[in-house]
Design a protein around this nucleic acid. Structure first.
Length: 426
DNA sequence: TCTGGGGTCCTAGGACCC
DNA sequence: TCTGGGGTCCTAGGACCC
C-alpha cells in the first residue's frame, strides 16, 4: 500500500500556525503580486470564496465577509514544508516529496491491520510538531490513494484525517463518488472529452479497457491511468531528491516596466535567484533563456512578447556569467514603447557541476576563486537572510518589484521576525 | 489600479544512421 | 510490375501537476 499525505489548506494553515487568534476565522492567501486567490481555509471555502480567481474581483466580497487576507510568504511556507517532510521522514525513509504540501509514503513494510493506527500516529505527530493539519489517503496505487485523500478531506468528521481504500466495494463506491475531473491525471482537456463520451465518474473510466485508453487518452498515459484506478500500480514512488532538469525564476511586476535599465535590473535579479537554485542542487546550466511580455489581460494595447535563448560556450553556475549573458539577451529583445508586465529567466541543459564539459575553443581557464565567491555569497545569504550580499546589477531601489501588501512576518527564517511570547512585537 | 509561478512527461514527426 | 527493415536523436507542442 501507498499513502499520500496532504496538508490541509497548506498556505492558510501556515499563516494560522503563528496566529492563534486567527483560529476558526476565514483566511485567504494571495499569489505573487497579490494577483489571485491561491489558498483558502475551510471557513473561507464555506463563505463561498473560489480558488484561483483574481483578487481584485473578489476584494469587496472578502472585505464585506470580514475575511483575513495574506500575501504569499514563500519563505514561511518553504520552511514549514521542510519541517513537515522531516517529520514524515522520521517515520518512513521511503518518502517521495511530491510538492510543497504533499508526500507519498511507501507502506509495504506496515502490516495491513496496523495501517490505520500508523497513519493516525503520523498525522497526529505532524500536527504536534509543526502545527500543520494533514489528511492521509491510503490505497494500492498512487491514483487510488489520491482518491482516498480527496474523500478524506471532503468528509473530515467521518474519517478524522485518515482514509484507507482496500475493500473492493469501498473502492467502487469511492470511484463512483469521484467526478472525472477530480481524478489525479485527468485535466481540463481530457475531462471535457470524457464527459462528451458519457464518462463522468472515475468508476465508469475504470471500466474502459486499456486498448481504448491507448487510443483515446494519450497513449501510455491513459493506459497507466486506467490500470491505477483498477489497483494495478503503474506509477512508482520517486526516489529521494530529484535533480531538476530546468530551473526558472519569473515574476510579474508591481507596476509596468518601460525602460531597458529597469528590465535589465529585473532580469539580473531573476537570474541571480535561478543561479542560487542551480547551485543548491549542485548543477551548472548549459543554456539560458529570458523572456518578457506586456499585460496579457489589457486588450486596449497590443500584446507584445519576446523570448531570447542562448547556448553557453560551456556550462556554468556562476551568477556573474549568467547575468552578463541574460543582459545581452535582454538588450537584444527589448523594444522601447512597450509596457512590460512580466519577465523571467529559465536555465536549461543542466549538468552536474563536477562534470562540466569544457569547450575546445575556450581561451579563459575557469577561475576556482569565482566558484568560491559564489559559494560564499550563498552561504552568507542563507545564514544572514536573502540578498545580504548581491550583485550591483540587480539594482538598489527595484521600483518594479512585485506587490505584496499583506505579507506576514518570516517567523521561522528571519531573526527579527521571531515570534515573541507575552508582548506582541510592534 | 487590479488576473501566479513553478515544474514534468509524452507524442508525433522529421532527420539521420546502418 | 518492382523500391527493406530497423534504429536513434531532436524538437515543438500538448497535457498534466501543485
Amino acid at each position: 500500500m501507498k499513502a499520500i499525505v496532504d496538508c490541509n489548506s497548506f498556505y492558510a494553515s501556515c499563516e494560522q500556525v503563528f496566529r492563534p487568534d486567527w483560529k476558526g476565522k476565514p483566511i485567504v492567501v494571495l499569489s505573487n503580486n497579490d494577483g489571485c486567490i491561491i489558498a483558502r481555509n475551510d471557513e473561507a471555502k464555506r463563505l463561498g470564496i473560489v480558488m484561483g480567481g483574481p483578487f481584485f474581483k473578489a476584494k469587496d466580497e472578502i472585505k464585506a465577509k470580514n475575511i483575513t487576507v495574506c500575501s504569499s510568504n514563500y519563505a514561511l511556507y518553504g520552511d514549514l514544508s521542510r519541517r513537515v517532510m522531516e517529520t514524515l521522514l522520521y517515520f518512513n525513509p521511503e518518502i517521495e516529496v511530491y510538492s510543497v504540501d504533499e508526500a507519498f509514503l511507501d507502506l509495504q513494510s506496515i502490516p495491513t491491520n496496523c495501517l490505520k493506527n500508523y497513519a493516525t500516529t503520523v498525522k497526529d505527530t505532524v500536527f504536534q510538531w509543526t502545527g500543520i493539519p494533514v489528511s492521509i489517503g491510503i490505497a494500492a496505487t498512487k491514483t487510488l490513494a489520491k482518491v482516498a485523500n480527496r474523500i478524506c478531506k471532503k468528509q473530515k468528521a467521518k474519517h478524522n484525517g485518515v482514509f484507507i481504500l482496500s475493500d473492493v466495494d469501498e473502492i467502487n463506491e469511492a470511484l463512483d463518488n469521484t467526478a472525472i475531473e477530480d481524478i489525479w491525471g485527468v485535466g481540463r482537456n481530457n475531462s471535457k472529452k470524457l464527459r462528451f463520451w458519457g464518462i463522468d465518474t472515475a468508476l465508469k473510466l475504470s471500466k474502459k479497457d486499456t486498448a481504448w485508453a491507448k487510443k483515446h487518452l494519450g497513449g501510455v498515459v491513459g493506459v497507466r491511468l486506467i490500470n491505477e484506478l483498477n489497483g494495478i500500480p503503474c506509477i512508482e514512488l520517486g526516489e529521494g531528491l530529484e535533480i531538476k532538469k530546468m530551473i526558472a525564476s519569473t515574476r510579474s511586476f508591481g507596476k509596468p516596466v518601460t525602460t531597458l535599465s529597469d528590465l535589465k535590473e529585473a532580469i539580473a535579479t531573476y537570474t541571480a535567484r535561478a543561479a542560487e537554485k542551480l547551485r543548491l542542487q549542485e548543477s551548472a546550466a548549459g543554456a539560458i533563456q529570458v523572456f518578457f511580455r506586456s499585460d496579457k489581460f489589457d486588450y486596449a494595447i497590443p500584446y507584445h512578447k519576446n523570448t531570447q535563448f542562448s547556448i553557453l560556450s560551456s556550462a556554468t553556475a556562476n551568477t556573474n556569467e549568467l547575468i552578463l549573458e541574460a543582459q545581452k539577451l535582454t538588450e537584444k529583445g527589448f523594444q522601447s514603447g512597450v509596457a512590460y508586465k512580466k519577465a523571467g529567466v529559465c536555465l536549461f541543459m543542466l549538468v552536474p557541476e563536477n562534470a562540466i564539459q569544457k569547450n575546445l575553443f575556450d581561451t579563459v581557464e575557469a577561475n576556482p576563486q569565482v566558484v568560491k565567491l559564489n559559494k560564499t555569497m550563498d552561504m552568507l545569504n542563507r545564514k544572514l537572510g536573502r540578498d545580504t550580499v548581491k550583485f550591483a546589477s540587480v539594482g538598489l531601489t527595484q521600483d518594479w518589484k512585485t506587490r505584496c501588501e499583506e505579507r506576514s512576518p518570516e517567523y521561522t527564517t528571519k531573526w527579527k521576525d521571531l515570534p515573541r511570547i507575552g508582548k506582541r512585537a510592534k
